[in-house]
Write a protein that binds this DNA or RNA. Structure first.
Lengths: 216, 216
DNA sequence: GTCTATAAACAGATAGAC
DNA sequence: GTCTATCTGTTTATAGAC
């Protein structure tokens, strides 16, 4: 099965594993299913490449970290201290990109499902994901928030408010089946994402305004 | 093992199953683990009481529906048309109760984890949970939101905004490990819940105000 | 690198004693 | 209702041919 594809067998296996682990859970997924979903590969390859099923799990987490870094490069720590209005526009852009990714990019479903599962299990993989993607992005969000409101970017209030904004976006990924059913939609097409985006940007500017005029 | 406990063996098994299914996932949990966690019951009892492991899963979902109804009774459909200010106060109370439940009540962790898992798997149990608890509560939330803003309680905007509020609360349950680590907390004690509550009520009134002055 | 064959453990379900 | 014993299938992991 040595072919000229840019996707090596190893990559195929990881992609299939992320999809299946995310959708069905780690324990519920067998290495046979993964090998089959990776294009009919052999079962023994998993042990050969990753040592064990658990090793494959770690490799999935590292691949997710790398992929998110590719999609959302972290901004440099020293940012040009923009004005409040500019920072608010950057927050809007960030929110918009994040929502688009979460609701429109097909692979985001697999990634989000995988992360979500590992998040509730709090194992070794949780640390890889937290250190690799979550911590940096949240700090970056807080920095922007601080600039947009003129408050301390690392105060408890700012950090919690940043999570409350993330929660709003993430719900439309995690709770997608609920939202779709309650709205009577057949799915979340770009038009529906724009509908959601209008709600979330309204919320964003309303909440920003509240913290600007009442900085606690 | 016939004793005088108010908790029958059946109930013990369901409670243990909700906890384990929620924490580890359905497939990852064996009936042997459940029997052990239910006080060292016998494995064969699961088949005896619920027919199969899948039957136990359904029974868990039905128990969750019943329990949530007990904790949060649904308001009658015809509510006294309260004023905007009164409706806003009711929304605040609802938000506060919901957050308390999600972050403070120990059994909420098991329930939320179970629901979350079933939500991403979209099986038969999802329907039981959606019809049994989610649809009614969301409609009730929209009704209050409509009263507080003077807008149509069943408009797409209102329904989506209600989800965005729910997402904020739920994130502090689902993303709890992330929040705790990022804030440097050792957990979410009542004092931390109050901290979060301050953020969420600020957000609530800011968003309500935005929709009142700009009803779209 | 990729395959087959197989080992060793464990799953859910059931039969039947008590 | 609760138990032991067991059947049947499937799991991960490995040994070894190619």
């Amino acid at each position: 099965m040595q072919d000229n594809d840019p996707q090596s067998t190893r990559d195929l296996v990881i992609a299939a594993a992320i999809r299946l682990f995310g959708h069905q859970g780690y324990e519920a997924t067998t290495v046979r299913q993964i090998a089959l979903a990776a294009g009919g590969q052999n079962v023994a390859l998993v042990s050969y490449y990753f040592g064990s099923k658990e090793g494959l799990r770690r490799a999935c987490a590292q691949e997710i970290v790398a992929r998110i870094h590719r999609i959302f490069p972290t901004a440099p720590d020293e940012m040009p201290a923009a004005g409040q209005a500019a920072a608010e526009r950057q927050l809007e852009t960030l929110l918009s990109l994040f929502l688009d990714f979460m609701t429109q990019v097909p692979e985001a479903e697999d990634l989000a499902a995988f992360v979500l599962r590992e998040l509730t299990e709090s194992g070794e993989v949780f640390d890889i994901l937290y250190d690799g993607v979550i911590a940096d992005r949240h700090r970056q969000l807080c920095r922007l928030w601080g600039q947009a409101t003129g408050t301390d970017p690392e105060s408890e209030t700012t950090r919690l408010t940043a999570f409350s904004m993330l929660g709003q976006v993430l719900y439309f990924r995690i709770g997608r089946p609920v939202v779709v059913r309650r709205l009577g939609w057949s799915g979340i097409a770009p038009a529906e994402t724009e509908q959601i985006k209008k709600i979330l940007t309204t919320n964003l500017s309303a909440i920003l305004a509240a913290y600007r005029e009442d900085p606690e």
